[in-house]
């Protein structure tokens, strides 16, 4: 088992948002977590990535059998957990290639692999950038600064390509994307999808799932998973709307 979430209760500012969440993810799987606003989707992503503002009240999260919650966010990243942000942060003054090389080398060092010098890394980066159709023009620019919404999301997927995580959590990656950007991002994710990694797609809309086919769909409402199924569940959800499952939240 790559990721195992057991009866997770978590929240922010003293307010409990996740109220007993369970989830199991194996290598090679793509899971979609869907839910209406306020269902706890973002909280789950942030708790898994280790955001300091979120507090775990009880429950367990195991990553490759080890307690993920006791690791700092950077340790989780080096172990292979990646989160693509809904709102990627701008880092003025630091170039994309500089930033990516630092991140790559931190991980390489942790795993006893060779670090890359700027020239070697540039070749590696050029290869990876093809995944999201990014030109080398973006390497010199400051991280996300002045990027359009679509460019920021593509940059997130580029980071995923560079860091090759075992588990990638894509937090509302489809939000704010036009159809072309959505296609590029989705194709990038499909290229990176393999039997060696797993992907969790956190999304409000079914739209993204037309491009990235999930193996499992989980519907989150009121801080719990209220319905689970295959990719057909997403289509059913799109037709019937979230009110359909909100009723289930109470009865479960």
């Amino acid at each position: 088992m790559l990721l195992e979430v057991r009866d997770l209760h978590a929240g922010i500012d003293g307010k409990e948002i996740l109220k007993g969440l369970n989830l199991q993810v194996k290598k090679g799987e793509v899971h979609a977590i869907m839910g209406p606003n306020g269902s706890g989707k973002s909280t789950l992503s942030k708790v898994l990535a280790g955001h300091p503002s979120y507090e775990v009240i009880s429950g367990e999260v195991l990553f490759e059998g080890n307690n993920l919650l006791e690791l700092e966010p950077d340790e989780r990243a080096r172990e292979g957990v990646f989160m693509a942000f809904q709102y990627p942060v701008e880092v003025p003054g630091v170039s994309n290639s500089q930033f990516l090389r630092l991140a790559y080398n931190q991980k390489a060092k942790h795993h006893g692999q060779d670090e890359l010098d700027p020239l070697e890394f540039n070749d590696y980066l050029k290869e990876k950038a093809k995944v999201v159709e990014m030109s080398s023009e973006f390497f010199k620019r400051s991280v996300n600064e002045g990027f359009s919404g679509g460019e920021k999301k593509r940059n997130e997927i580029l980071q995923m390509a560079v860091l090759e995580p075992k588990l990638a959590i894509l937090d509302e990656t489809d939000s704010g994307l036009d159809i072309d950007a959505l296609r590029i991002v989705a194709e990038g994710v499909n290229t990176l999808r393999s039997s060696e990694n797993a992907i969790i797609l956190v999304t409000h809309y079914q739209r993204l799932l037309n491009y990235i086919q999930p193996d499992f769909v989980h519907v989150l409402a009121g801080g719990k998973i209220v319905k689970e199924g295959g990719k057909e569940l997403a289509i059913e959800l799109e037709e019937k709307g979230y009110d359909w499952v909100k009723g289930a939240a109470g009865s479960k």
Partner: peptide, 13 residues
């Protein structure tokens, strides 16, 4: 804090 968190999630100490 959000900028720091972003960099941490990319594996920078």
């Amino acid at each position: 804090e959000e900028e720091l968190f972003y960099l941490l999630t990319r594996g920078l100490p």
